[in-house]
Design a protein around this nucleic acid. Structure first.
Lengths: 333, 333
DNA sequence: CTGAAAGCGCTAACAT
DNA sequence: ATGTTAGCGCTTTCAG
């Protein structure tokens, strides 16, 4: 009674219409290859029997699964919320299923999951992959992938142009009179972290200004305390933080320790995640189009899947802009 | 060259070991049914060939897919972040794949996706289903499901006990001297919304106090403005909000209009989502164990799948508690 | 305990 | 344009 009630198959439709199973198959999956009237007859019967094609049988023969895996390094990180939203949306529009995988910040788990799932998916989106360049490139040779915020030769990717955003942020701080700026560093193995630091160094150098690098700090709210304490020990009047999560943590700790933001120190975040506009004070940050990044990544992947084109080395860079809120202000005298 | 490099199958292992394919199959999926030494030989060869079983072939014959769908009504809503984290974690631990589906607040899309996916999944977790009771019950008869925050006869579920939390919150407000409390209502078709409202009414009545119901408001930050404005038009000194998202929106609007919280009005949220502890002022709210809800839901589903037991009508209620922060205070004189 | 054989539902050559 | 015939890789009777 709890048994699955014997689904209707392509053969049932064949029997009902008098056509061969293969014709039914064609009519349903390659409508062009079949006479219009037989196609209509078949579609009609299929509908009336409420036929649903069996994904597995289809995948088994065709190799296509209409499923894309989205790997994030930590589902918990609100940065991914927007991204997941973007991939989810775009994938659904294309009729693809969305397999969510959390690699728990581990390259090992990442590649393990990927090999395990290889035949269950047509491709994958790797957000913030923890895989070393070589492995990533090797993987890309076996499986269509698109990386987000990761620039490796031979791996199509969607990059968020934080460098130019960081440059803007730096100019913003300098124009407010800040002469010494610190960078609160995120994970050492993060591509974005390195890119942001470099951009800060470059821009500050152009103005003949020194920068300090503090950290690394794991990029979560908790570690904002350590970061804030480190910050207080310096005499910088402004800092750019690896990401908003960390920045929000810093803000909380600074408040706790009675340091006024932006009165005594200005804070800039990165990403503009959920919360950046309602924390206290609201956070000046680099707004990254992360939902769009998810969408674009999916589009690239899908194109690749459909064209069959190797599409090596294709990369798209998405712009960021500085969103000024209340956490930055004039340097104290 | 881009062709998938011909995966190793059970037959390769059979050839390599000299055993029949069926024996290999058994050794790999039902180790008990096979001689220890042949099993070891087979496992060994399988490993050395880095064999990965084909999900689809397996699903096709066995009917099992080791995949569970998690349906949320809106991936964007931070309430689901914790939930997804919980399901993701638990599912992965059990070796199941996690299929994320966004039903976009539409019952139609919800059931459509579910029928389409029926043979691709072993079961589903429905978070905040928009399906009418009857359809939900019918669905549960066909497919193992566990509902979250939805109480329908015959559908196993995980319920978050907001009623007792709301009661606590109400007592909290009354003890602070508030004599007239409003409820900012969420979507009318939400089970949780109804439950919360009832709990407020009951508790207030016990103290002989009136309550006002405002709304309904779509439960997102945007609509916090409308909700706040409606609130200002009353002369209540405190309100309980359907959820934190709405509450955070209300806080922002109140601030904008110069209304002091909690000086002039106290606000209580529900759920304790990401952000509730760092918005301004920090939000007094009902802390719901939503990550745990996800975990429990998965456990229930998995038990059901493995025991094969119909497990009708099993429900688990998870407790909530009031987390007092800065958005509530004594009633103004 | 192990092997042989028969499919699961569908697609993809190959014929017609 | 349609039908025939083989499987895809695996599990599962059913024998031995």
């Amino acid at each position: 009674m709890d048994q699955r009630p014997r689904r209707v198959t392509i053969n049932d439709i064949a029997a009902a219409t008098g056509f061969a199973a293969s014709t039914v198959s064609r009519a349903l999956s390659r409508p062009g290859r079949v006479n219009a009237v037989t196609r209509d007859a078949i579609t009609q019967v299929a509908r009336s029997l409420s036929y649903v094609p069996n994904t597995h049988a289809r995948a088994l023969t065709s190799g296509r699964t209409e499923t894309v895996a989205v790997l994030v390094s930590d589902v918990t990180n609100p940065f991914y919320f927007g991204l997941i939203r973007g991939t989810q949306h775009q994938l659904k529009a294309a009729g693809y299923a969305h397999l969510l995988i959390d690699s728990e910040n581990s390259g090992g788990l990442e590649s393990h999951m990927l090999t395990k799932m290889r035949q269950s998916i047509d491709g994958a989106i790797l957000a913030a992959s923890r895989l070393p360049d070589r492995l990533l490139a090797a993987l890309a040779a076996e499986l269509p992938i698109v990386a987000i915020n990761r620039n490796v030769h031979g791996v199509p990717s969607v990059l968020i142009d934080s460098p130019s955003g960081v440059a803007q942020a730096t100019e913003h701080l300098i124009s407010l009179g800040h002469r010494e700026i610190a960078y609160l560093s995120g994970p050492e193995n993060s591509w974005a972290n390195a890119a942001r630091w470099r951009a800060l160094v470059t821009t500050a150098a152009r103005h003949g200004l020194p920068v300090r690098r503090l950290g690394p700090f794991p990029a979560d709210r908790m570690n904002g305390s350590a970061a804030a304490d480190a910050l207080i020990n310096t005499n910088v009047t402004a800092c750019i933080t690896f990401n908003d999560l960390l920045a929000i943590g810093v803000l909380a700790r600074l408040h706790e320790r009675g340091v006024n933001v932006p009165g005594q120190i200005s804070i800039v975040g990165c990403d503009d995640i959920f919360g950046a506009d309602f924390c206290h004070p609201t956070l000046t940050t680099l707004t990254a189009p992360i939902e769009q990044a998810g969408q674009v990544a999916v589009s690239m992947l899908l194109t690749r899947l459909h064209e069959g084109a190797p599409t090596t080395r294709q990369s798209i860079v998405l712009p960021t802009h500085l969103t000024v809120r209340d956490s930055t202000g004039p340097a104290p005298d």
